[in-house]
Simulated scan of single mutants.
Amino acid sequence: MFIKTKYFGEIDLEEDKIIEFPQGVMGFEEYIKYTILYDIEEGEKPMISWLQCVEEPGLAIPVMNPLYVKADYNPTIEDALLTPLGEISDENALVLVTITVPEDKTKVTVNLKAPFIINSDTRKGCQIIVENNDYPVRYNIYEVIRKMKEVGGE
């Protein structure tokens, strides 16, 4: 099926690449079908991806694996919230956090308080509020990214 996207134009998307968020995502509860897109060369691992809504081309949320910027990220989640996703394991769980990039790049943040949890086997996802009080909505990642680039030689 062909879908229109905010940053990638029109793309041919296979049905098995669609992730359903039965309750939608926060602020966009009416949209339930998404896919994950990224712009990398073959064999590279994407640091930033896009949670692209299949139903609304203008809705594309930048996301990343929280472990890239907070290696000890271990959210406490009420099991009942994950039940609709099916059996979750370390092998099929995908955790993503939203990225906010303001005009001042030194203020780039990720939301550690409300991650997306996706079961890659069932292709069902949800966005939840974690119980951990030490995970902020705006966790600044500028210094972490800068240090990663220094180590990587960029």
Rank of each mutant, 00 (worst) to 15 (best):
I99L: 15
L59D: 05
V151R: 11
P115R: 06
G86F: 00
M1P: 12
I117F: 08
G9K: 06
S120R: 15
Y68N: 14
T5Y: 05
E42F: 06
N132R: 02
V101F: 09
E91C: 01
I129K: 07
M148H: 11
F116K: 07
I18D: 04
P22Q: 05
K149P: 00
V130P: 09
D121H: 11
K70I: 04
K113G: 11
D79G: 12
V69L: 10
E15R: 06
N111H: 10
N65L: 00
V110I: 14
E91V: 13
R123S: 10
V144D: 03
P46Q: 09
K107C: 08
R123D: 01
I88W: 04
V101H: 05
I99F: 06
C126W: 01
I3Y: 10
T106E: 15
Q127Y: 05
E30F: 00
I118G: 06
Y73V: 02
P136E: 14
I18A: 06
T76M: 14
N140G: 09
N140P: 13
M47C: 03
P115G: 05
I19M: 01
E103W: 03
I99R: 05
T106L: 08
N133M: 12
P66K: 08
E15M: 02
T35S: 12
I129Y: 09
D121L: 08
W50L: 14
E41T: 10
Q127R: 07
P22I: 07
Y73R: 05
T76N: 11
Y7K: 10
W50H: 12
K149C: 12
E131R: 15
N74Y: 03
G86K: 01
F8C: 05
V54L: 04
Y31T: 09
E44A: 12
G58E: 15
A71F: 11
L85R: 09
T5W: 10
N140H: 10
V108I: 15
F2Q: 15
V151Q: 13
Y139M: 07
N92G: 03
A114M: 08
P75N: 06
I129T: 13
G27V: 02
E44L: 10
T122P: 10
Y139C: 07
I18F: 06
A93M: 15
V54C: 04
D79N: 14
P22F: 04
V97M: 09
E55Q: 13
D12H: 13
E29L: 13
C53I: 09
G153V: 12
V63Y: 03
N119F: 08
E131K: 15
D12L: 11
I118R: 08
P75G: 07
K107S: 10
G43S: 00
I99C: 07
V108E: 02
P136G: 11
E154D: 12
M47H: 04
G9C: 06
T106P: 07
D12G: 02
G58K: 15
D90W: 03
E87W: 06
E41I: 07
A80T: 14
S89M: 01
E87P: 03
F28K: 11
